[in-house]
Amino acid sequence: MLSIKNVTKRFSGIVAVNDCSFDVEEGTICSLIGPNGAGKSTLFNCVSRVYSIDSGNIFLNNKRIDNLATHKIANLGVGRSFQLTRVLDELSVTENLVLHTASGFNFHLLKRAVTKDDEVKAEQVMEFLGISHLRHSSMKELSYGQKKLLDLGSVLMADPSFILLDEPAAGVNPRLLETILDRISLLKDQGKTILLVEHNMEMVMGISDKVIVMAAGSIIAEGKPSEIQSNKEVLEVYLTG
């Protein structure tokens, strides 16, 4: 579904992503792991065109997307969350969830900000994530974990076919982590394709169909979780940093 071909991204003299190539098959969960500074989030940002790549190509269902604007990639069915939760505190909980309904630029923007249909769907997503009780809460009252779930919810509301999750387990308690894991598995069962960046090895090895290991901007290993767990080069990178 997603095909990354020889992608390189530089920031002045620093090569953050160095000639990376890999594929993510449809309906699978692929995890991207590596030490801090390996280029994982940068690669995410390249896929969603928050950053422009310096060379290479990115394809989604055989359609080139590295030359499209960020909002156009989102409208092709790519949803993503951020490493540091980026819910909008100035909007209400429901407005955060239905943000994608203000996408594009045509006459639908004349509709009410939150329509009855939006409310129904938002309720379904909140139930799926177990946060229905937050519906009328002020954003200031939400904990970090709840905002994390809300962030995930806003991605799911758009019903994307391809989901980029950037460290969904970061900063959440074990019980909430179980909830998130459970929901990610359900999304895969629904036919979604997920590319996941995570540091939580137990989570990654337990949930992934494929694991890709990055270090210093390059891909150093790729394979099933069991293969990666016994890969000497991977172990060396994680032990030496």
Binding site: S48, A74, N75, L88, L91, V98, L99, A102
Partner: peptide, 27 residues
């Protein structure tokens, strides 16, 4: 109270987040 206003308010606070949600920030 419109979706246009929702997009505009989102853009005012976080253009990247808005674009990733599919909002045509420039327009």
């Amino acid at each position: 109270h419109s979706k246009f206003g929702l997009a505009l308010r989102a853009v005012s606070h976080d253009e990247t987040r808005s674009a990733v949600a599919g909002i045509n920030v420039k327009m």
